[in-house]
Design a protein around this nucleic acid. Sequence first.
DNA 1: CATGAATGAGACTTCATTCAT
DNA 2: CATGAATGAAGTCTCATTCAT
Lengths: 226, 226, 226, 226
Amino acid sequence: MKKGSKAAEPDTNGIASDTRRKYDPEQTKRNILDVATQEFSAMGLTGARVDAIAERTNTTKRMLYYYFGSKEGLYQAVLEKVYGDIRALEQDLHVSELDPIEGMRALVEFTFDYHDRQRDFVRLITIENIHGAKYVEQVKSFKGRNVTVIHTIEDLLSRGIAAGLFRSDVDAIDLHLMISSLCFHRVGNRHTFGTAFGRDPSHPRLRARHRAMIVDAVLRFVRKED
Amino acid sequence: MKKGSKAAEPDTNGIASDTRRKYDPEQTKRNILDVATQEFSAMGLTGARVDAIAERTNTTKRMLYYYFGSKEGLYQAVLEKVYGDIRALEQDLHVSELDPIEGMRALVEFTFDYHDRQRDFVRLITIENIHGAKYVEQVKSFKGRNVTVIHTIEDLLSRGIAAGLFRSDVDAIDLHLMISSLCFHRVGNRHTFGTAFGRDPSHPRLRARHRAMIVDAVLRFVRKED
Amino acid sequence: MKKGSKAAEPDTNGIASDTRRKYDPEQTKRNILDVATQEFSAMGLTGARVDAIAERTNTTKRMLYYYFGSKEGLYQAVLEKVYGDIRALEQDLHVSELDPIEGMRALVEFTFDYHDRQRDFVRLITIENIHGAKYVEQVKSFKGRNVTVIHTIEDLLSRGIAAGLFRSDVDAIDLHLMISSLCFHRVGNRHTFGTAFGRDPSHPRLRARHRAMIVDAVLRFVRKED
Amino acid sequence: MKKGSKAAEPDTNGIASDTRRKYDPEQTKRNILDVATQEFSAMGLTGARVDAIAERTNTTKRMLYYYFGSKEGLYQAVLEKVYGDIRALEQDLHVSELDPIEGMRALVEFTFDYHDRQRDFVRLITIENIHGAKYVEQVKSFKGRNVTVIHTIEDLLSRGIAAGLFRSDVDAIDLHLMISSLCFHRVGNRHTFGTAFGRDPSHPRLRARHRAMIVDAVLRFVRKED
DNA sequence: CATGAATGAGACTTCATTCAT
DNA sequence: CATGAATGAAGTCTCATTCAT
């Protein structure tokens, strides 16, 4: 996003290098990835145009192939990056330190907020599903990372059960699916929903209401009835 | 418009006629639409190939343009047909004759079953959202039909409130969004979900469990707490 | 132009025919020709669309082929008709009865008026020239008819020379070319001329001035200088 | 942009280089333009075939789109080039240094010669008129350039009037139209004219006679009568 | 005579990718 | 590392024409 590569990047950490680094591979790659993320997210894998990506880049099409090999390679790199971005955020959420109900609330709210903000992420997941998830399958970092969420939920559930707060017949993965559904759908399908009902479900004005509603629904679902 | 179905072409007045009607525009159109539905659903609007559609058709590419004008025109016709198909089914659901709780259960189960079975429908909606719903907006039958569901839900809610069964602070459209989310996501995003958690959420084995879970979640959400 | 064929055309000259003439071939042909004249004139031979012609016709495309064989056949029929139309008009011009100067003036004015009004004619000639006149060559009525004009001019010239009014070194065909040039160009090339000079030379306001100018130029050219 | 002409590619610093420069965009573009000029001129905009152009080119069809975007874009580039070519020639004509009558003669002869030689130019103008001049309108260099001729004519006329040689009631644009008509028509419509009268008006044998005739006609028209 | 349905051939255009400099 | 030029394959669409009824 910083822009202005090329001529800049002067003093290289005090190390005298008379070869002013005219080229910064990392920045170039990052630049390409950023642009590609937008294009793939906006147009889909098939709809995205390599030329369109290259054009909005600081470099040329050749570099795109140099670094990522092919359109599909670039697409996979985008998927990889997008997942990497989440990981950082998730670290900040220390659910295990909260009591079960507050922890569950925090988890749902985090999930909600994340989907609400990261529309590109939502779209890319959608796109992947149209392609049968065959590209994300090849992304190494993908499979591993998702287990964490399940562990978090399992921890919350078992602590909640132990405390007599939660029912004991809830499957963690199913619950995750439920939370995801509620947070994902309103963003991913907002266009058809908006057309059908004249109300964009991702509109800021509805944000707070939906957030509360989803938290409420999840808690009602897991809570033990007296 | 007369229809005639696919497996038909049955009794030709007892006379054995080896002259299959070469000119049957309705059948030709239906044939094209059926194939196109699969292709668009499987590949997306951009990914679909007109040639691929034509090849699996009983006619030629030319007819496709003869009847539908363009790739986009064909895509829109597919959207239109898919929505038309739902309408028929919805008629069979007489929710207003059931008591509020049973009615709500019936509605959710219908929604669940429909999404569970009509994967093409789910995929096409997904695809439309990638395109910002700009094609479905031009489909006349689209906007009108959706209001019905909201009316159904409003009826259920008000009757439930009157009977002291439901809480009074639930918005009908929001509730519809919730139900849709729960029924749609597990089908539409089953690929990435399967990759991430090693479990295909739309797998038949999970079907009954999810169905019950979603009904449960919705009823818990609308129910008035004592 | 009359329209409303089909159902009409009742009594067939007193001859009892219980087969009401539902179809009137001559009118159908005329209808097709009229529409085709416009289309070919507006779009050129290559640019004209058989479908476009058929659409604006009272009949169908099949009839077009039935009567004219092919697109080119239709085009030739149009050329033929257009030339036939002129012939009728030319009969009304009895130049030989006028004195040489008045006769010459009448001829030029007639030529001017004709081109000024019959833009379709002008365009079709233009189109023919793009195609190297290869279609008009096959039109039987074409070659013969043009000699008449030359004879008219020769008659005027010789009578003018005899009367001591005209110079004797003017070739009739060359003079005809001159008159044609002056009358044709301002119509046929009015678009580029208009773009280039911001003045449409075929605009009604300029009509009278150009008419006078051209008559003047021609008379000055043929007149014997004292 | 530097240019480099056609017959060039000459001394490669004395070193015999058998490596014909494979990458020479200017030459590629020029090559495409030259071929396209012929094809459009011969076949018209609609009649011209992109494939036909590409085939007679040193490159492929793809390059044609790379440089000119579309068939219409290429057509416009041809129009632009053709007009550019005239400009160079016009510079050589220093009419203002001649006396009015000689100047007028020179102008007419130049116009005559130009049309007589540049048949492609004449045809392209004709083609443009069939398309209502809508492409030439978008050619930037077009509008400006034409004013020059009018200024030249105005200068000749006013000097001629001042010298008592020319009549004072001639409009410069009308006179230009007259000269154009006489020079253009015999080339542009030579095919139909030839068919009609068995005499190709652009035939070399007639060239001198027509040239003299047109000069004569124009001078007689502008000259003040005693 | 009349007609809607059908079509093979070929039109224009775009794609992801590689090459020469 | 970087770049504009180049490309074969494939894409969408249109044309004049014919066929079955």
